[in-house]
Design a protein around this nucleic acid. Sequence first.
DNA 1: CGTTTCATTGAGTGCGATCAAGCCGTGTGG
DNA 2: CCACACGGCTTGATCGCACTCAATGAAACG
Lengths: 216, 216
Amino acid sequence: MTTVSLKPAFAAPPVPADQLGSIGVRMAFAAGEEIYAQDEEADMIYRVVSGAIRTSRLLSDGRRQIGDFYYNGDFVGLEAGPVHRYSAEALGPCEILVIRKSALKLYGEEGIRIERMIWAETARELQRTQEHLMLLGRKSACEKVASFLLGMAGRFRGEVAELPMGRQDMADYLGLTIETVSRMVTQLQVDGLVRFVDNRRFEVRNQPGLAQLVEA
Amino acid sequence: MTTVSLKPAFAAPPVPADQLGSIGVRMAFAAGEEIYAQDEEADMIYRVVSGAIRTSRLLSDGRRQIGDFYYNGDFVGLEAGPVHRYSAEALGPCEILVIRKSALKLYGEEGIRIERMIWAETARELQRTQEHLMLLGRKSACEKVASFLLGMAGRFRGEVAELPMGRQDMADYLGLTIETVSRMVTQLQVDGLVRFVDNRRFEVRNQPGLAQLVEA
DNA sequence: CGTTTCATTGAGTGCGATCAAGCCGTGTGG
DNA sequence: CCACACGGCTTGATCGCACTCAATGAAACG
């Protein structure tokens, strides 16, 4: 199973998905399929069981910003005020646990526990978003790509890392164009910092060098 | 009193500060004074009682990103994992209510209520940060400045809006330089969209025009 | 084998950064 | 009251990074 083989490679999820017990409904999505829409009202939260997800937001002229990418164990849709400001789509085939927030109250002690887990994840999500802010506001194209690759590589312990998204998604996450992402990837390879096996698989060749580009 | 005269102009805080009862300690800060430091361990959360705050993060080479600006009623420092990734400083003289998170448990029912308030604010904060992401990643300098001014003007009902921060803070919030901010402000004035009374006070002259630049 | 989709590479442009004056309000001391 | 200095902001000239437009290359698919 894909899910099982990928699991050990990802950063340890705070709580295994199975601890959610019987709460929520498992749903399958195909590549590119929308999980929820921008401006959609939202009482649901979502947890990745297998596969990968992106959240994204469109301006009316087509410019797109990706909020973040999510992998198994991650919660998605936490930010929800009255409506979702970002939509969520499957990067590839994936399974999602859908939980109705208002239903948690019905589950007593178990519901409370999950609610706390959600709050903790919301704070973590805020931290990650703040990191993303610094990246978008104050880093060069090269630093952006280096940060992204280093972060992705961190999910795979020294092995070849696999990108679940294409160049356009990377570009829209980093606030760049695909051409610039491509050029930076090439440059990082020429400099011997990373090596791409193919378009979506790479390994870090010079960890300290990469880390220096990312700095603090 | 400055605080009192400003209060009605700000967006209604979800809960008035006085409902926090006796929990927490009121502290005064001078302009520019640090409320908490980047990488500082943090069990505290903070609430603005009067004045304005900024959160900011520095890279080792001096580049700075401002996370957000906070006004009375706003909670600051919610994101805290083990340490603060951003520091917080007073924009001008201000009063801050400092609350020890771990102490909330001692306050029984009242503590729980405040804890819930904090969680709700965290989700709101996440939403605002996501809005900020889109601004940094996909908007032009002109759109950035227009968005910022429109947002600030929204706190003042049609009257002359007052900026509690200087151009450098605006620039570091928007991911621009002071020169570019200055040029965009000039251009927006030439285009008749806003009018600056002085460096820190302005009014919106063409709301629809501005809103169009900001769009969705 | 052609078609389609996605990534790379190249050439040229432009937006925002950088470097450098100049301006203006404010405060300070003579 | 004026001269001066200082900090914050604006304006100008130039530069360079990342975008745009365009062509090519390389997989994936029917």
